[in-house]
């Protein structure tokens, strides 16, 4: 389709600017999801398995944090990373790294809360066996996380889905700088404001397509995993 300037046409033609936007979106959201997993999975598992004062409060807090609007997280990170803020000296505001920080803060509670639920359910099933085998606390957490790995794939996806589709936090901390911090969602916001609705819709469809493909891949992995481990 020569001369086609819709997002599809550009993507099919391998338009470098559009590909860079797609690549940055994926890099930011995947990094944030991975970091959030490193923090959230052990945290969720620890909350599931330990009894401490304020545990109930912690669970309510994690569940509530799942619903915090991205724009509030964006504003908070913005104030922290601004040159006039406490972490301003790192010069991270308006960089992809700042967007990763914001999305990590957004996704961690989702992964932690869902992990807690998953691990707690599995723990109800495993409790007697592991206790009878005298398994120590750290190994217990590792066992449950490993054995829940296929459910946790879904959890990670939920986190990635939220990260990839949000615009509120990254447009504030990233600044939507062309070729540097412009992602699919911030580009959609920009094209809409320029009144270029067809390009905005095209980008939206590309975004949906990517999310569908990643979900389908994860589904295949999950089914293959279940066939293996039951």
């Amino acid at each position: 389709m020569p001369g086609d300037t819709s997002a599809f046409g550009l993507l099919l033609a391998g338009d470098p600017a559009l590909l860079a936007i797609v690549r940055l979106s994926l890099a930011v959201s995947l990094s944030a999801t991975a970091l959030a997993a490193v923090i959230g999975i052990p945290l969720g598992a620890a909350v599931a398995l330990t009894r401490f004062r304020g545990r109930e409060g912690m669970i309510v807090f994690l569940n509530a944090m799942m619903g915090v609007p991205p724009v509030v997280i964006g504003l908070t990170v913005f104030l922290l990373l601004s040159r006039s803020g406490p972490l301003g000296s790192f010069g991270l505001l308006f960089t992809p790294q700042a967007m990763i920080v914001a999305q990590t803060i957004m996704v961690t509670p989702i992964i932690a809360a869902l992990t807690r639920q998953t691990v707690e359910d599995l723990w109800a099933e495993y409790r007697d066996e592991l206790t009878a085998m005298n398994v120590g606390p750290l190994r217990k957490i590792a066992t449950l996380v490993w054995d829940a790995r296929f459910s946790l794939v879904t959890t990670l996806l939920a986190g990635f889905g939220r990260a990839a589709s949000e615009v509120g936090s990254i447009i504030i901390v990233g600044g939507n700088i062309e070729g540097f911090t412009r992602t699919m969602t911030t580009a959609i916001a920009l094209e809409t404001s320029k009144g270029d609705l067809s390009l905005a819709i095209g980008l939206g469809i590309v975004l949906i397509g990517i999310v569908v493909i990643i979900n389908a891949l994860a589904w295949v992995v999950r089914r293959a995993g279940e066939a293996y481990a039951g």
Binding site: A27, W146, G175
Partner: peptide, 30 residues
């Protein structure tokens, strides 16, 4: 512990991926 290790590696990789952006220091914010 394979999951956590591989996730960590993935995170690190993704961060490195975005690191070249830091390298272009001949830039200004307007």
């Amino acid at each position: 512990m394979h999951t956590r290790r591989s996730l960590f590696v993935a995170a690190l990789g993704a961060l490195l991926l975005s690191a070249p952006a830091l390298a272009q220091d001949k830039s200004i914010v307007v």
